[in-house]
Structures are given as C-alpha cells and as structure tokens.
Amino acid sequence: MTVQELKEQLSLSVLAGEEELDREITGCYAGDLLSWVMARAESGDVWLTVMGNINAIAVASLTDAACIVLTESAALDEDARNRANQQGIPVLTTEEDTYAMAVKISRLLPEAP
C-alpha cells in the first residue's frame, strides 16, 4: 500500500510532502516522544503522532518513515511544513485519535500484528 492509497482509504488530508505520496508503506508506529520513536520506528512505517514540530520531521527523515499522520488534527508548525516539503516527507492529518487510526491501518496492512 502506498501513502496515496492510505490517504484515500482513510480520507486523510495532505499538509506537506505531496510529491512523495507514492512511497510504499510496510508498517506502522505510534508515539510522541521523539527519542523513543527513533529507537523503535522502522523504515517504511506510517508514524502516528501529535508532534508537528521541525524535530518530528527530522525523526521521520532519520528513521526513513514512509509518512507522518498527525492525529486529532494536531498542528503542523510552519517551519516543520517547509522542512517536510524540502525533505520530501509526506505529512497527513486526521481528526481521529491515534488509537482509531492504528486500528484502521492494521486492517489495511497485510502483515499487521
């Protein structure tokens, strides 16, 4: 499944990184403490978080996450939006909370836990 397909299936809106929506998704990770996420998130993960600052973009880039989904309509800083566009990190948003998103994503991923 690609980020584009995830966006369509779950009615997400794109806030940044529009050009990288063909990226393949292989898993999902949820968390807001950046170092914790850095230790655990895998390459190709959808990352569910409420952290929309510039450091979150760095973490997504360093862990090679497929995209960030900001849950509960958490805000994306202007700095972060610019950095995400520069680095080609798709950032999407939803009104739903992290739990609801994770449940829905697990139904879409072939190897979900």
């Binding site: 807001d32 403490l33 950046l34 170092s35 914790w36 230790a39 450091n55």
Partner: peptide
C-alpha cells in the same frame, strides 16, 4: 514539550 527528554538519547546511541 518538544518531544525530547525521554531519557533515550545515550541508550539509543549505544544501541
């Protein structure tokens, strides 16, 4: 509040 300070910095570097 920025999402740091989880006490994982050095452990992550080691890992």
């Amino acid at each position: 509040s920025l999402g740091f300070g989880a006490g994982m910095g050095l452990p992550n570097m080691k890992k």
